[in-house]
Design a protein around this nucleic acid. Structure first.
Length: 424
DNA sequence: TCTGGGGTCCTAGGACCC
DNA sequence: TCTGGGGTCCTAGGACCC
């Protein structure tokens, strides 16, 4: 039985989330900014039509925003995370075999559906997601994940498809791939694009028809997998169980330059707390802790400094106070006065399952049980009453370094606000 | 004043072992 | 005269994704 994949992709996800809760924005240009209100990370179709580019720095666009009446939001990740969960729960109603690929995308397996019914089935999925969550999606269907991705792109870019495109029953797949720039193929980034074009490969079809050996040599096995997938040979399986993360990072640019070690430590306390929460959420512990800090590379007239340091823990841990201690020690080593720092962060690696922690003979009677009970309590309180209900004194009270979020929408979906009814 | 924050996988090359 | 070679592990760096 041959495979059939669907890729469900939320249209302009963050912008759509904001619009669900303010229907007056329907048909109007909306953009969402990155952390620190730095650059554009999501745009409604109307904003795209104005020529606003993904990743464009916000400060360069202020005039355009004003002139064109663009509604601008700071990013509100608790809202988007919550909406994402609703979309994914809706999709789960339609198939047990599903991979949540990112905050706004999911792959579904449709292997049980008779081929002649697949397109209708997928249209029903699209309508249901829209009715239950208010989020518009595009859905592509193909024999491989790469083809499903390509199909979803066609669905999104051609309104006449009604947001759904099934490439498996299309008679002219060659023409479709002819019309797809090679850079639009999943897994082909800017470097590969430049390289491929040097060899006359400009379209998805040309890539599909390239020679295996040549592809293997220049694009490695990852490239060869893409080529096979374009030919309809499935090489990238559905990953239904999310694999535990192998590295967990938490970092943030500051809302303004930071000069003092004390403030860097405050920020670091927050980042380590976030990272350790993620660690515990997947029931694991980290053996290695990296810390980095850097100045603002865009300020060419200011002295630049960046550095990182690593420590190996005696015993893998997810205990926040311990991780904070190590991170602060590394920060003290790295810190040099006289610089204006832009960003710092922590990266946890060598992650092992909680129940496989190797105890060290040098650390007898390590106080595991009590520590993990305390952490569990903190995590439960913060999950119920909101992040930061319980936090560490060393996170500081004033927190002047926190990111700028000057255009935040209300937290519609979290604890204290009512959830508005979405009209069908 | 102002330029995101996460992640994954793959390869090459060196060290080390027998 | 002759100057192994294969396996494994680790690290750094590159490329990709959203």
């Amino acid at each position: 039985m041959s495979k059939v994949f669907a890729l469900v992709d939320c249209n302009n996800f963050y912008a759509s989330c904001e619009r669900v809760f303010d229907p007056r924005l329907e048909g109007k240009p909306v953009v969402v900014l990155s952390n620190n209100d730095g650059c554009v990370v999501a745009r409604s179709n109307e904003a795209k039509a104005l020529g606003i580019k993904m990743g464009a720095p916000a400060f360069q666009l202020e005039d355009s925003f004003k002139k064109n009446n663009v509604t601008v939001f700071s990013s509100n990740y608790s809202l988007y995370g919550d909406m994402s969960e609703r979309v994914m729960e809706t999709l789960e109603q339609f198939t047990p075999d599903m991979e949540v690929y990112s905050i706004d995308e999911a792959f579904l397996s449709l292997k049980g559906i008779p081929p002649s019914e697949v397109t209708d089935y997928v249209r029903r999925i699209r309508a249901t997601v829209c009715r239950w969550t208010g989020i518009p999606v595009s859905i592509g269907v193909g024999q491989t994940k790469t083809l499903a991705k390509a199909a979803s792109k066609i669905a999104k870019n051609n309104p006449r498809t009604g947001g759904v495109f099934n490439i498996t029953d299309h008679p002219e797949i060659d023409t479709l791939l002819d019309n797809m720039p090679v850079a639009d193929v999943w897994g082909i980034g800017p470097r590969h694009e430049i390289f491929l074009k040097r060899f006359g490969i400009h379209t998805a079809r040309q890539l599909r028809d390239a020679h295996d050996i040549w592809v293997r040599k220049h694009l490695t096995v990852a490239g060869l997998r893409i080529v096979f997938e374009l030919r309809g040979v499935s090489c990238i399986p559905l990953e239904e169980m999310p694999m535990p993360k192998k590295g967990i990072m938490s970092s943030r640019s500051f809302g303004r330059p930071v000069e003092y070690l004390s403030e860097l430590k405050e920020a670091m306390t927050t980042f380590v707390s976030r990272a350790a929460e993620k660690l515990r959420a997947q029931r694991s512990a980290a053996h290695i802790l990296h810390v980095f800090l850097l100045t603002n590379r865009f300020k060419e007239d200011e002295p630049q400094y960046s550095n990182s340091a690593t420590t190996v823990l005696p015993v893998s841990s997810s205990y926040t106070p311990e991780l904070i201690r190590y991170a602060h020690t590394l920060l003290e080593i790295l810190y040099k006065p006289g610089y204006r720092y832009k960003k710092t962060g922590v990266f946890l690696t060598e992650i092992v399952p909680e129940n496989e922690i190797q105890t060290s003979l040098l650390v007898p009677g390590y106080p595991y049980k009590r520590n993990s009970e305390v952490m569990e309590l903190v995590d439960r309180i913060n999950a119920r009453w909101g992040t930061d209900t319980v936090r560490y004194a060393s996170e500081g009270i004033q927190r002047k370094w926190t990111m700028r979020r000057e255009r935040l929408s209300p937290h519609y979906t979290t604890v204290w606000s009512e959830i508005p009814v979405v009209k069908a």
